[in-house]
Amino acid sequence: MVVLFWVCAIVLVGTAIAVVGSRQPVHSVVGLIVNFSALAVLFLTLSAEFLAMMQIIIYAGAILVLFLFVIALLTVGNQPIETGEGRLAHQTVPAIAAGVAALGLIAFGVRTAWSQSAASPPADLGTVPAFGTALLTTHVFAFEATAFVLLVAIIGVVLMAGRKEIRF
């Protein structure tokens, strides 16, 4: 279990850096697939079986395919972007500094406040029946709201992508 966690952790961090650092968006997408898969494994270690499946199906299956479509649609034959200096001065260094500072602070806080783990979770935590029961009884309103969010997203995408001319 511990070994599995650390393997997944190394994969997650490595692929995350690859996603952010690669020049080609396609490489980023590939990295992201591996990243999401490793995250699904971590969900399993956290006894979240349903979430692990969702992670693979929705993220790796749906969202990343969407990314790939967009990349295929747009960047073929185009010059690679991010050539030359960016328009913003003093962006990279402060961004990295802010990230490192946030990391340090959160790590410090986590180490201080959450040094002990609680007792073992109940046996049926994260199983599909338990998840379904929670989702469709206790959290049914949130579930229905999600449906509405998706509907709005669909309408918005159709409106924007369907239009021929836009102006900035």
């Binding site: 402060p94 961004a95 802010a98 946030a102 602070l105 410090f108």
Partner: peptide
């Protein structure tokens, strides 16, 4: 990106405030 950086810096400051008061 500048807006994003501003938010990030604000988050860091809030975190620092929280950690300091909690400590």
């Amino acid at each position: 990106r500048r807006y994003g950086l501003t938010i990030a810096v604000g988050v860091v400051l809030l975190l620092a405030w929280y950690v300091i008061t909690a400590y």
